[in-house]
């Protein structure tokens, strides 16, 4: 599977392509960090890798990474994100107080800052939104996710959720937002 076609497939929202990449590099990456940071548990490593993959996905959907600017292989790009995530993890975990980490290569930040940590108060509010989304249910939940997270255009959303056209999808979106906001304010 060619990197550029994978990139394209992920960009168009092909969830299967994302999972294929995930499974393809899963073992090699976990093996690497479990060996180099031997106090990491499998659970830690799965967390780090899944977060890295999410960061890769977001960089593709928000256009930061595309076919033109992929300078290395997709694997190298993913592993670089993963190593950065691992270092961030290790830094705030006192099990790793006995090792010193020096970073000699200034490595680009490949992932979205939004993926980092929020103030406790902010995270509490996000969790309320999460609950409201669940209460809202599908298709509204799915519609809002496709629009705000997966960055889908209205025409694509219309296709995916079987609306007549982009305008119908847009109307639906407005209704869903109104309901979500109502739920949010009642919480």
């Amino acid at each position: 599977m060619n990197d550029l076609s994978v990139l394209q497939r992920i960009h168009t929202g092909d969830q299967v392509a994302l999972e294929e990449v995930y499974l393809q590099f899963h073992n090699e990456f976990l093996g690497l960090i479990l060996r180099k940071f031997n106090k990491l548990t499998r659970e830690d490593a799965e967390d780090i890798f899944s977060e890295s993959m999410v960061a890769l996905y977001e960089n593709i959907t928000n256009g930061r990474l595309n076919e033109e600017n992929l300078s290395s292989t997709l694997k190298t790009y993913l592993f670089q994100i993963g190593i950065n995530k691992t270092l961030a993890f290790v830094k705030k975990d006192n099990r790793f107080n006995d090792i010193k980490i020096e970073i000699s290569k200034s490595s680009e930040t490949f992932y979205d800052e939004e993926n980092e940590h929020f103030e406790n108060e902010t995270e509490q509010k996000f969790k309320i939104v999460e609950t409201c989304l669940t209460d809202l249910g599908n298709p509204c939940k799915r519609l809002l996710e496709l629009h705000y997270y997966h960055k889908k255009r209205m025409i694509e959303i219309a296709e995916l959720l079987n609306y007549k056209n982009a305008d119908v999808a847009k109307n639906q979106k407005a209704k869903c937002m109104k309901r979500l906001r109502k739920l949010f304010n009642n919480n």
Binding site: S50, N115, F126, V129, E145, Y148, Y149
Partner: peptide
């Protein structure tokens, strides 16, 4: 609400990938 939707969706995606592995 907007970053909240992204937070929630991201969490779900991460969870599904994690259990896949």
């Amino acid at each position: 609400i907007l970053p909240g939707i992204r937070y929630s969706t991201r969490k779900e995606l991460k969870g599904s990938l994690k259990s896949l592995g």
